Amino acid sequence: MAGKKVLIVYAHQEPKSFNGSLKDVAVEELRKQGCSVTVSDLYAMQFEPRATRNDIVGHVHNPEQFNYIVETREAYKRGGLSSDVVEEQKKVQEADLLIFQFPLYWFSMPAIMKGWMDRVLVQGFAYGFPEFYDSGLLKNKLALFSFTTGSPRETYTKGNTNGDIRYLLWPLQHGTMHFCGVKVLAPHMCFAPESVSEGQRKEMLTAWAQRLKTLWKEEPINCSSEWYFK
């Protein structure tokens, strides 16, 4: 899909990691398609994950009692957010597709990526009231969560050790992306890449590249509780 713009938000400390390889495959394949691809390599950028007063440039709305949601909403209105947040918001605004690439940490994303969500997706930019869920301010965008796990696939099934993998996706896909209006594609999961052979890891990378070839033809998942908890 020539002309499409993609933002990959990537969180791994090691460029030679399997997550790094998944990111590289996505960049290569999407650029072959004529897409414009931007990567926010959060660790390499030393992205600040903490949501603090430093995210507001100039005066605060209420100096007596700091409320991060209110202050960032007001700062966004007047163009008073810190430059690193503004830069990421510009990337999001320009993107047709957001890909989040990361290893699963404690049934969630790494803290640095959660911090990206906290600081970048502020009220007024990503959502408002009543502009949320299907009416969210990012409603013309797609998102895809691509991640690796430490445990094998069978442990992430209903009734097994870790429970259905979809349970873990509820706060990421529904509570964050769908809340902001983003349509969510089915996740791409590579189970326990460190516990399989080199040949199997290559097969995982090939499968990701193959999926990316037809990604723009995919229909978003039905963002309802039934999809996650059926």
Rank of each mutant, 00 (worst) to 15 (best):
K139V: 09
P152F: 12
W116M: 13
P171A: 03
A111G: 14
L121W: 08
S146T: 12
G128L: 07
Q173M: 08
Y127F: 15
K141S: 09
L169I: 11
Q173I: 00
E154M: 08
L137E: 04
F147L: 14
P110W: 13
V122F: 11
A126I: 05
A126N: 07
G115S: 08
F125V: 03
T157M: 06
G136V: 13
W170A: 05
W116C: 10
W116K: 12
L168W: 02
V120L: 03
P171T: 01
G159H: 13
G163I: 05
I165G: 04
P130E: 14
L142H: 05
T161P: 00
S151M: 12
T155F: 07
V120A: 05
L137G: 08
W116I: 13
R153Q: 12
I112V: 15
N162L: 14
Y156H: 04
N140G: 15
F129I: 15
Q173S: 00
T148W: 12
K141V: 06
M113P: 02
F145C: 07
R153T: 02
W116E: 13
A126Q: 06
L142G: 05
T148C: 11
K158M: 10
A111N: 04
G115P: 06
L138D: 03
F145Y: 01
D134H: 08
I112F: 11
Y167W: 13
V122T: 15
L138T: 02
A126V: 03
T157W: 04
A111W: 09
I165A: 10
T155K: 08
L144Q: 14
P130C: 13
A143D: 01
P152K: 07
E131D: 15
Y156W: 13
P152G: 08
R119T: 07
Y127T: 02
K158Y: 13
L137Y: 07
T149Y: 00
F129G: 04
A126C: 06
V122M: 08
K114R: 12
K158D: 03
D118F: 11
Y156I: 10
S146K: 02
E154V: 11
K139F: 12
G150E: 08
S151I: 04
N160P: 00
N160C: 00
P152S: 11
E154P: 06
G163E: 03
K139R: 15
F125E: 06
K139M: 05
R166Q: 02
L137C: 10
Q173K: 00
L169S: 10
D134C: 03
M109E: 12
G115H: 09
T155P: 01
T155M: 10
Y167Q: 10
F145I: 07
P171Y: 01
Y127W: 13
E131K: 06
L168Q: 05
V120N: 03
F145V: 03
G159P: 04
E131G: 02
M109V: 06
P171M: 04
G128V: 07
L144M: 15
L168T: 01
E154D: 13
I165R: 09
S151E: 15
S135Y: 15
R166T: 01
G115F: 02
N160Q: 05
L144P: 00
V122L: 12
R119G: 06
F132A: 11
R119D: 12
K139E: 14
